[in-house]
Write a protein that binds this DNA or RNA. Structure first.
Lengths: 147, 147
DNA sequence: GTCTCACTTGAAGTTGACTTGAGGTCAAGT
DNA sequence: ACTTGACCTCAAGTCAACTTCAAGTGAGAC
């Protein structure tokens, strides 16, 4: 049984130690014991963290993820939930694709002002009509602490 | 010059009045005057709001959107920025597609536990490796006040 | 005239996922 | 023995995009 301290886990998982403590507090992960004050983790936690990352990437909230393997230890992932999420994702993908096409068109549209381009105005109407689903993509990328 | 009061604009744009005030405070829209205390908007504000909705749908933040037509009145939308956002979107789309495929597979995978399915484990590794970009899709849908 | 009710303001609250800070502990290296 | 520095806890702060609240104002209906 390989024990890892929080720094090792953080490094291996690419997460901040504070995030691991936060996850533990939320019940998403568990430490296997302490060495002095310091948490020790079983190597299996890495798989669990990967699962969490997967869930997050798929659009599940931490609370939803927590429920997936809340009961005992083993994850009990509902296949229905998975396909539901999959088709939700599918919808998002379609919307984003439309958006991308619109942006691309607008970018190379010859009309002097975007407001004079019929395609742009069409997209505009679509957006205004709320046809495009609500979405918030936070680009948190590369926000690691610059030590 | 058709003047609309805040309620009319809110209704037409499908936004809460508080949102309009918030946008105005942020400089995203401007009221053309007041009738007593009450803001009056030019009908053109609706086009502007559509533009804002479009920007939001494309993944721009309100601050980014504000900068697009901050200077004068007319929007001066940079075509380079548009294609940049488009390819950014493209990346997101690809990630989400992979995610969706993975979820679908997992949903109908015959392995007794997901952890025993090689495909699932592959996705897991990808997620753990951070290959899947960070993303947060808040499903705020249908959150309109239930009056 | 007075009532009502949608509007006004500014401040504070909300949500999710964390991060940061202050003040404390302790295992290991010198 | 002592210092160091990574860890600890708990509370509070952050960010974005709003919403909610309390207290007040004024236009239009009666």
């Amino acid at each position: 049984m390989t024990e890892l301290d929080i720094a090792a886990v953080a490094k291996a998982a690419g997460l901040a130690a504070s995030t691991l403590r936060f996850y533990e507090e939320k019940g998403l992960i568990t430490s296997i014991g302490r060495k002095g004050l310091r948490r020790q983790y079983d190597a299996a936690v890495l798989e669990r963290l990967a699962l969490i990352a997967l869930g997050r990437a798929a659009g599940f909230s931490l609370d939803e993820i927590a429920q997936m393997f809340a009961a005992d230890g083993r994850p009990r992932i509902d296949r229905q939930m998975l396909s539901a999420k999959a088709s939700e994702l599918d919808g998002t993908i379609r919307q984003l694709s439309a958006m991308r096409d619109g942006l691309l068109h607008a970018a190379k549209c010859p009309a002097p002002s975007h407001m004079e381009c019929p395609t742009f105005r069409r997209i505009l109407r679509a957006a205004g009509a709320g046809a495009l689903g609500e979405r918030k993509a936070r680009s948190t990328a590369l926000k690691r602490k610059a030590s």
